[in-house]
Design a protein around this nucleic acid. Structure first.
Lengths: 192, 192
DNA sequence: GTCTATACAATGATAGAC
DNA sequence: GTCTATCATTGTATAGAC
């Protein structure tokens, strides 16, 4: 792994744990094990490096979503697979965490990966729900876009609860509750 | 409003918008319109002042919860009232926001108000759901504690989505979706 | 490309005048 | 109680050697 890559990886870890304002170039250099010259050679500054790190986070998270939402089983099964995927409850979401950082929101280069990724997840879940309604697997008594936002919000909010409690339990509860609520959307025929 | 109070109020606003690491004593003094001597007379330092501010946030949020969860109508009506309460989607939750700040989580005096408040909301919602099951208003096919975590998580996660999108729409969607999902928990008799 | 040295503002706190 | 120095440390960036 070359210096540029080490810098990006170190930044990804620090952004995850401490956010953008909480992460200093000094911290990044120490963790990456490179000098300042290296960083300012490859990047224009902290924001530029953070943008590269967030772009990588977005790519990774998107790829992971593509996998879990892929065809193969019923719609509800895929949604449950998404919800119950193993997650680091106490560490939170690499992308979602950034929305709490005003400096990130203020910089279009930093906000774009965040907005795009969460927007994509909402859309993707909405598509799945609509597909389930069309196929008769799910009831038609709800708006896919709304419930999709609910589903994605549960995951993000679950992290908040887990961090506040310093325990994974509220996260697991929130996910389990969401699964129970979604399961209730099955049509009667499918119950059989 | 005396200097001490002005300091607390200024801190509450800054913590809300910029978090703990993003808020400096300098910012606080400027907004409160007092000098440094005043702050270090009334408080031992930044952490002590922040603790006072978060305590006030917790008290306020708890009181607001007591009101909306109070008796008077059906359980579902109260839950919907809680979910659809007018909220500043783009600004987020004064308490929930703090869970993303590692320095807050690391300091017991700062974390306590956050943990207590969100824990109290989860418990309160769980009690309501159990009450609804006991009275026959809600189905018994779910675990109150789990769905309660889901409900509270939707609000917290809705803020994340709204900030990421810089739009209240995903927040409103998440809430509306949650209302739709909860409404499906009504027993058949109640539908009439 | 990477390092060290340097610069300069901001952070968080202390000391002492009034 | 409040104000104005003052201070050590950190944050972010630049300059120039190698």
């Amino acid at each position: 792994m070359d210096a540029r890559d080490r810098l990006i990886e170190a930044t990804r870890e620090l952004l995850w744990d401490r956010g953008y304002v909480g992460t200093s170039p000094r911290d990044i250099l120490a963790r990456a094990g490179v000098g300042q010259g290296s960083m300012y050679h490859h990047f224009r500054g902290k924001a530029d490096l953070a943008a590269a790190a967030l772009r990588r986070n977005a790519d990774e998270m998107r790829a992971s979503g593509e996998t879990v939402f892929a065809d193969g089983t019923g719609v509800l099964d895929r949604l449950v697979a998404y919800l119950t995927r193993r997650r680091p409850a106490l560490r939170g979401c690499r992308i979602g965490r950034m929305s709490e950082d005003p400096d990130v929101l203020a910089d279009p280069r930093l906000r774009a990966p965040v907005e795009e990724t969460l927007g994509w997840y909402r859309e993707r879940v909405a598509d799945l729900l609509a597909e389930g309604q069309a196929s008769g697997e799910l009831t038609t008594g709800f708006a896919p876009r709304q419930v999709a936002a609910t589903v994605v919000a549960v995951v993000q909010g679950g992290y908040v609860l887990a961090k506040a409690a310093q325990s994974a339990e509220p996260f697991d509860d929130a996910i389990a509750g969401a699964v129970a609520l979604l399961t209730a959307l099955r049509t009667e025929e499918e119950h059989a």
